[in-house]
């Protein structure tokens, strides 16, 4: 390939290297994940309270008080964590350039993770039941090496996820025949 190396952000007309800029995830994504985790913890809280109040194996009064205090403390901490997580999810973003794909994440620790497309081994669009309900998808990008660190862009509209996937696959084709 003797063409001039370019790495501009896709869909933008420039023929030089540009720094990746953040595209935000789908609007509903942060809300949806937060709602899911609130539901999960609420159910857990209900279960704990039911277990405490059920009449079959009565819990002694002192134990009950301590448990309620612990549950209240834990609820406050979890509530704060959920709030933090909400803003963290909201801060996530991505950028697809000609030659690489970038994920932005983190609120206090900001990470910019860039995966060159020529190093991608395979790519998957994944959708859980909730994703399907709200029309979202996750894009998983795999490269060699550290399995613990998979590159995953969550909260993409399904069309966006598919089009990114297709763009990357098209690029890989070029790599193989070029």
């Amino acid at each position: 390939m003797s063409t001039v190396f370019t790495n501009s952000i896709l869909n933008v007309d420039h023929s030089k290297i540009e720094s990746p800029t953040k595209t935000h995830l789908a609007d509903c994504y942060a809300m949806v994940t937060t709602a899911v985790s609130i539901t999960f913890w609420a159910v857990l809280l209900m279960l704990a309270l039911c277990a405490l109040m059920q009449p079959f194996w009565p819990v002694p009064q002192s134990g009950r008080d301590i448990t309620i205090n612990i549950i209240m403390g834990a609820s406050i901490i979890i509530g704060l964590l959920i709030l933090f997580k909400y803003f963290e999810e909201k801060a996530k973003g991505y950028c697809v350039r000609e030659q690489d794909i970038t994920l932005f994440k983190g609120l206090i620790f900001k990470n910019i993770i860039t995966q060159p497309i020529c190093r991608i081994q395979h790519i998957e669009v994944k959708r859980g039941p909730i994703d399907r309900k709200v029309g979202l998808a996750k894009l998983h990008v795999y490269s060699a090496g550290d399995i613990s660190q998979t590159f995953e862009i969550p909260g993409l509209a399904l069309e966006t996820a598919n089009s990114i996937r297709n763009q990357i696959l098209a690029h890989k084709e070029m790599q193989h025949h070029g």
């Binding site: 983190g106 206090i108 620790f109 900001k110 990470n111 910019i112 993770i113 860039t114 995966q115 060159p116 190093r119 490269s143 060699a144 090496g145 590159f151």
Partner: peptide
């Protein structure tokens, strides 16, 4: 190199 991460905490920024 397979991929690279650039990271900054608030204080580092």
């Amino acid at each position: 190199i397979q991929k690279i991460t650039f990271s900054q905490s608030y204080f580092m920024e």
